[in-house]
Nucleic acid binder design. Sequence first.
DNA 1: AGAGCGATTGCCT
DNA 2: GGCAATCGCTCTG
Length: 192
Amino acid sequence: MHRKHLCELKVDEAARALLGQQLVRILTDGSRLKGKIVETEAYHETDPAAHTYNGKTDRNAVMIGPAGYAYVYFVYGMHYCLNVVTGPEGTGEAVLIRALEPKEGMDVMQQNRSLQAKTPGNMCSGPAKLTQALAIDRQFNGHDLRSSPLYLKEGKPVADTHITRSTRVGVRSGASTPWRFYIKGNAFISKP
DNA sequence: AGAGCGATTGCCT
DNA sequence: GGCAATCGCTCTG
């Protein structure tokens, strides 16, 4: 996934394009954690479910900035969620990463998940599960996703015929917008 | 200044 | 299936 694509594609197209790409996290002890993106959701400032719907605030500023950066927000008093900022600078659009298929460092991911994840299928199958597994918190808000210790790596694109779309999970307003995308039949998505 | 609530998860019945 | 945990952002007064 090149930055060029992230700023030129419409956000729902970017959400599709991010499927199959790899997310890599390098820990300070040198551990390398990697997962393939298998589920995403698109958010756009014209959409009532988006954090940017009511304009710019301190919290959502990164989402309105340039594409290719991480927008990490804190929710429910305990969880972090990771978004990839997309679109031209000045518009508030981003793609929420909802699930990863673990590829490297699963032992460390399991420790980061407080041993709550006993199986690979429960390691990164949710937006807050994967941030826990990859130790992603607010320090990565505004981080350039081209650079270590957290970056996107080119993966095999997923053909549209292998992508399923549905409505987004957990949103109230904008609930009918079918902007959740996942790899058809993949065992690592958040909800079967 | 303070109430209300959220792009969730895991435990309990 | 229901609900608590837990905190900071947002909006109202």
